[in-house]
């Protein structure tokens, strides 16, 4: 078992520098800045490039929810070549956004992660097709060609297992994460997140048929919040504060998704985002993130039942996990003290 060091030396030096600058600022600004001086710098590792996918976090930052809670949060974007797990393992990020299947894989490989909360109750994976050749149910997949990143083959396999479809009857065409092959007629359908490629197609004037995998038994928590056991033990209050601001941000988000989209564009003018697309995406991810369960218990919640369903699907994906992977205690503190 490799021993994982919580904080890299590089980080501690940077933290020192950050502390240095905040202290200087504090002395310059006088009394008002005392809270700022006391605020703890925290890195929050997002799972992808900036977009309204993380709208709730931008609200938490813009409205000062985190600074009120004594945190100075840096939102670090991800990317195609920026896996979330390494910065979280080393402690250079306190918390990261992952997904249950990726987290399970990381834990199998020795990372001491726990899932603290679940942003996407329903998994966003979806199969998009064109209306004249639609895929409405998994059974329709037989005899069709599907464009997808071959890395996602286990996802398709799990869907087939769950619905009694023979995966050998589906022709898998390796594609980039890109809608063009469907629109160019190279494939019959595409596997992607329901919140990006289908949204892009709609914006281009092609309304695709979208079949959400979650509606056909594919239960894998997505956009999950992860932290290390070490952070949970030693930086508990910071984690609670971070997650609390996050919950407050997402609660505001659902009240006005257009505002969240507008804020995203305003905050990240260089991210290459387009307002109309962001508005549509913001709207489309609401049913994935908010449900009766979250209405009842609050944003991010999960239960023994949803965890059990996840464990079953993860088993189909070849990942053996126990309920220990999930840790509700932080979220309980967050919602308990709201």
């Amino acid at each position: 078992m490799p021993k994982l060091t919580p904080i890299s030396p590089v980080l501690s030096r940077r933290k020192l520098l950050q502390l240095g600058t905040t202290t200087t600022a504090a002395t310059m600004l006088g009394l008002n800045a005392i809270r700022a001086a006391a605020s703890v710098p925290v890195n929050f590792q997002l799972s992808w490039l900036h977009s309204v996918q993380f709208g709730g976090s931008y609200i938490a930052e813009a409205k000062g929810y985190w600074s009120d809670l004594g945190l100075d949060v840096a939102l670090t974007p991800g990317g195609p070549n920026a896996p979330v797990e390494p910065p979280v393992v080393t402690g250079s990020a306190l918390m990261g956004i992952s997904a249950a299947d990726y987290t399970a894989a990381a834990v199998e490989n020795g990372a001491p992660f726990k899932i603290l909360a679940v942003a996407m109750q329903k998994n966003p994976f979806a199969i998009s097709s064109l209306p004249d050749n639609p895929v409405n149910s998994p059974a329709d997949l037989a005899g069709k060609s599907i464009g997808m990143a071959t890395a996602n083959t286990p996802v398709l396999q799990a869907l087939c297992d769950l619905n009694g479809v023979d995966i050998n009857e589906i022709e898998i065409v390796p594609t980039q994460y890109d809608g063009a092959p469907l629109l160019a007629g190279q494939v019959d359908c595409l596997l992607s997140w329901s919140t990006d490629l289908p949204v892009a197609m709609t914006m281009q004037g092609v309304e695709p048929v979208v079949m959400l995998l979650a509606d056909h038994g594919y239960a894998v928590h997505s956009q999950t919040y992860i932290a290390t056991e070490d952070a949970i033990a030693n930086r508990r209050s910071d984690l609670v504060a971070l997650l609390k601001g996050e919950v407050m941000g997402w609660t505001d988000y659902v009240a006005d998704t257009d505002a969240a989209a507008a804020l995203t564009i305003e905050r990240y003018p260089d991210a290459g985002l387009d307002l109309a697309t962001q508005e549509l995406q913001a709207e489309r991810q609401v049913p994935l993130m908010f449900s009766d369960l979250t209405d009842q218990h609050g944003f991010g919640w999960f239960t023994e039942e949803t965890v059990a369903a996840n464990i079953e699907t993860l088993a189909l994906l070849g990942r053996t996990v126990t309920p220990d992977l999930w840790d509700l205690s932080i979220l309980e503190e967050v919602h308990g003290s709201t």
């Binding site: 900036h50 974007p77 990317g79 890109d178 490629l197």
Partner: peptide, 26 residues
Amino acid sequence: IGEFTGAERGLGILTLQAMRRLDTDA
């Protein structure tokens, strides 16, 4: 390509977003 490691801005970031948006002109 380095921007794929998680950058805030740059042409690489714009490329990724444009391709996702199916924005061929961009």
